[in-house]
Amino acid sequence: MKITHVEVHRIVVPPADPPFRWRDGLSGSAPVGDGAVLRIGTDEGAEGVALFARPGAAVMLEDLVERVFREELIGQDPFQREWLWHRVWELDRIHELPLPAFGLIDIALWDLAGRVYNQPVWEVLGGFRRQIPAYASTSTFATVEEFLDVADQCLALGYRGIKLHAWGDARRDAQLCLALRQHVGAEVPLMYDGSAGFDLPDAIYLGRALAEADYLWYEEPMREFSISAYQRLAESVSIPLLVAETSDGAHMNSADFIKVGAATFGVRTSTTLRGGITGAMRTAHLADSYQLRAEVHGSDIPNHHLCMAISNTTYYESLVTATTVVRERHVDDRGMVHAPTGPGIALPLDFQYGSELQQFVEQASA
């Protein structure tokens, strides 16, 4: 079997309704934008797809396919995913590929393999579980009272924990974190994500408040360029750290966080920021060898498959962006997410794809 065509299909990515925001200093939800689907096909009819829905995705992916990817892929064996994953790393040395685009080829090839084998990709990967608890991962709301009300709604809907994305002000965020713990009681798992809003002194201050409130993990308080800063943070706070979400280098960079003792809870892994399925699994296995967690970041469908395939992950991350909470369709009323059943990975129902891509879209009952 050989790859014979590499295509980009543009799709419209609708804006969030209602719009939402992140911490101070970051932009909020994107307006309507041009997303894209990468489609890889073969001389025997087998095909696979990967969704790229970030702002500017269509222009970016069309350029990469025309300049780089198509020439590299045509004539290759689609089952040589490992070789092609390494080849993308080689290309990155010159082209400096955007991190979210890095794993698109790998995702499409895993999707292709699942369709050939007529199995969901989490089963092709070996499979570990058939369900996993979900936590509600908030966007940033205006007041403490709004956060507390959202938390009440999430718990009533069945979510098994709450992760905060707050304002990026260490003292104000600390007050929120303490207030939420007092509000929900001692038994509800709570997490905090700083979205890289702090320097080391403020990260230490907030980390001590999180430890006092018995949060499960403390995630990305600083930009992940300085591993030594994270080492100092780990030495200064008792709250477990979840690190290496956005840093370049996939498993290689994650290894350095672990080596210096900065990954005291574990490392992040995802198809989006760790180089597709292959990079995400390498990261998970690395963490497992140190008896650390590899928590899956993001609630898109490829990461849904990862949650079912990785032994050392704890939760599925489900984004909650409105003060009136609607439970994500993949989460049931007990807060559980169940393993996908269709072949491959599947495109989400959220977008209009056109008839040429309908065969790849998840079933409405999923």
Rank of each mutant, 00 (worst) to 15 (best):
L164T: 15
E90N: 10
L157N: 01
I94Y: 14
V144T: 14
M60V: 13
H304N: 12
F79K: 06
S29V: 03
Q175Y: 09
P189Y: 12
A263R: 00
T138W: 01
Q153V: 11
A142Q: 12
T321V: 14
I107S: 06
A170M: 10
H285N: 14
G41T: 15
I107R: 05
V8I: 06
V237Q: 06
G103S: 10
L319Y: 13
F225K: 03
I107V: 15
H285Y: 14
G207N: 01
I3V: 14
G103F: 07
A280Y: 09
G28E: 00
D63A: 10
S137L: 05
I105N: 02
V68C: 08
H5T: 11
D214A: 09
L51I: 03
E7H: 07
D106V: 10
E66S: 15
A250Q: 14
P343V: 04
A211Q: 12
M336P: 03
D34H: 14
A174W: 03
L233N: 00
R115K: 15
P18L: 10
S226E: 06
L319C: 09
S247N: 13
I94M: 13
G197I: 06
Y159A: 02
L97Q: 02
F225W: 07
P78F: 02
P78M: 05
P133L: 05
R70Q: 11
Q80N: 13
T324I: 04
M1Y: 07
D111C: 11
L26A: 07
L242G: 01
H338F: 12
M60N: 13
V267E: 07
G161T: 13
L206H: 02
G48M: 02
A151D: 02
T321H: 15
G56V: 06
L200T: 04
T4H: 04
V267Y: 07
G28L: 00
E90R: 12
A57P: 04
E212H: 05
D77R: 03
V37I: 14
S238K: 14
L292G: 05
M222P: 01
L292S: 11
V296M: 10
R23K: 10
Y230P: 03
E212C: 01
S365E: 15
Q153A: 12
G275H: 05
H330W: 12
G161N: 13
P15I: 08
G114E: 08
A309D: 06
E224C: 08
D256H: 14
L349M: 11
L26G: 05
